[in-house]
Amino acid sequence: MLTVEEREEIEAKLSDYPNTQAVAIEAMLIIQRREGWVSDEKLRDLAEILRLSVANLDGVATFYNLIRRRPVGRHVALVCDSVSCWIMGSDRMRDHLCSRLGTPVGGTTSDGQFTLLPIVCLGACDHAPAMMIDGTLHEDLNEQKIEEILTQYT
């Protein structure tokens, strides 16, 4: 079931657009903000309040990489793998994160704390390599800095 808050936040968005289809993407992001992903159950509820089919919504959901249809850890780390970060050693940072957390890219740690996902250019190329955890940008990464960052989240 969608919570009252989710429903209110989604309904507040309706006035920004001429129809309910246009709210679909932002509505899914609203749902995801609380649980980290969009479950089948929530998707069905959303389809009902937007008067759209579940298939339509799932078609939209699966197009966009920031909408997640599977559960994630408590924190989501997005590691940039685009060109400027690659030149500045993002492969090494990614490998370090994987071994430090004990999960491959695309996986979640066994304690459910972190999900590690690849991301395209975060627009922080002058401070590469970069990653983003739960919407906060972390720049000029090196092994030591990664240690400091991880302690903030555990």
Binding site: V120, G123, A124, C125, D126
Partner: peptide
Amino acid sequence: DEMEPGTFKDR
């Protein structure tokens, strides 16, 4: 929608 790799101006 600044997503061109290497681009960090609009932000």
